[in-house]
Computed example of a mutant assay.
Amino acid sequence: MEKFEEARNRIIEQNTDSQTLIGMQQTVRRLLSVMYYYEKPMTLNDMMELLDMSKASMSIAVRELEEMGLVKKVSQKAQRRDLYQVEDDNYESFLKYYGYHWRKIIDRKTVSFHESILELTELLDQESLDDETTSKAEKDLAKLHAGLGYFEWLNRLIETFETEEIFDFIPKKDGFTQTGKDAK
């Protein structure tokens, strides 16, 4: 049993390290990995015990994962504390994580680009600009509009994630279940 726990801990660490690629904070990555490999709903106390971290840290990490859709509250009879279950489908986790973060960035950038477009448009309406400044402002304005087109394209890409249309173009790998065994 001890060798299994050592092996599992190594696997969890490897999984946690690989999630560095997707930009999660260490606490959140570790919690997600632990919940994924323990395969059962957990309370904040369970998480605290397994990760040796404070309840406040666990609560913040769970809230972040819940906001992304990677963890959800579940209920079990006779359990009075909140239980949390991790999204155990790797494909679904990927789609939710990137969709969530890309949308946040796109929304913020779209507002910023619209503000810049308004500012440059007002500047171009002034008669006091010299030809060189007018040319530069017009080029910048064109780039901002192209950027908005790019953000629109990214939103459509995210929609293919959310509707799972993406799998029409890039199918999931068939034949393996969550346990890693061939389903056929």
Results as ranks from 00 to 15, higher is better:
Gly99Gln: 09
Glu87His: 00
Asp130His: 11
Lys3Gln: 10
Asp125Pro: 01
Asn15Asp: 11
Phe94Lys: 14
Ser57Glu: 01
Ala142Trp: 03
Asp82Pro: 00
Glu5Met: 11
Phe176Pro: 10
Glu64Asn: 13
Gln126Asp: 09
Asp182Pro: 07
Val74Pro: 01
Glu119Lys: 13
Val71His: 14
Ser18Pro: 01
Asp174Phe: 15
Leu157Met: 07
Tyr97Val: 08
Gly180Lys: 15
Thr121Asn: 10
Glu13Ser: 13
Lys143Pro: 03
Met42Trp: 05
Glu138Ala: 05
Glu122Met: 10
Gly23Ala: 03
Phe167Ala: 11
Lys40Phe: 02
Gln14Arg: 15
Thr20Trp: 12
Gly99Asn: 08
Asn45Gly: 04
Thr179Asp: 14
Ser128Pro: 00
Glu164Arg: 15
Ile166Pro: 01
Pro171Met: 15
Lys104Asp: 03
Lys77Arg: 06
Asp130Lys: 11
Leu44Cys: 02
Thr110Gly: 07
Arg81Glu: 05
Phe161Trp: 09
His101Asn: 08
Gly180His: 14
Tyr91Ala: 09
Glu49Met: 09
Gly180Ser: 14
Gly69His: 13
Tyr36Glu: 04
Leu148Ser: 04
His101Gly: 03
Ser57Cys: 01
Asn9Ser: 13
Asp182Trp: 14
Met48Val: 00
Leu148Phe: 03
Lys143Ala: 02
Glu119Arg: 13
Met35Gly: 06
Gly149Trp: 05
Ile11Leu: 14
Arg103Ile: 02
Glu119Met: 12
Ser18Thr: 02
Arg103Val: 01
Gly149Lys: 08
Asn90Ser: 09
Glu39Ile: 03
Met58Leu: 06
Leu83Met: 00
Gln25Cys: 02
Thr163Gln: 13
Glu66Val: 12
Glu119Ile: 08
Ile105Asp: 07
Leu50His: 09
Glu66Met: 15
Lys109Cys: 06
Val86Leu: 03
Gly147Glu: 00
Asn155Ala: 05
Asp46Ala: 02
Phe169Trp: 15
Glu162Tyr: 10
Asn45Phe: 09
Gln14Asn: 14
Glu138Cys: 05
Glu122Lys: 14
Ser57Tyr: 00
Gly149Glu: 05
Lys77Ser: 00
Tyr37Cys: 06
Glu5Arg: 15
Asp168Gln: 15
Arg108Met: 04
Arg156Phe: 01
Arg156Ser: 07
Thr27Cys: 04
Pro171Gln: 15
Thr121Tyr: 10
Ala142Lys: 07
Tyr91Met: 09
Lys136Ser: 04
Lys181His: 13
Glu152Phe: 06
Lys72Ala: 10
Leu50Phe: 09
Asn45Pro: 02
Leu157Pro: 04
Lys96Cys: 06
Val34Asp: 04
Asp174Val: 14
Ser54Met: 04
Asp82Ile: 02
Lys40Ala: 03
Leu141Glu: 02
Ser33Tyr: 04
Gly69Ile: 10
Leu31Cys: 06
Asn155Phe: 06
Arg8Glu: 11
Pro41Thr: 02
Val62Arg: 11
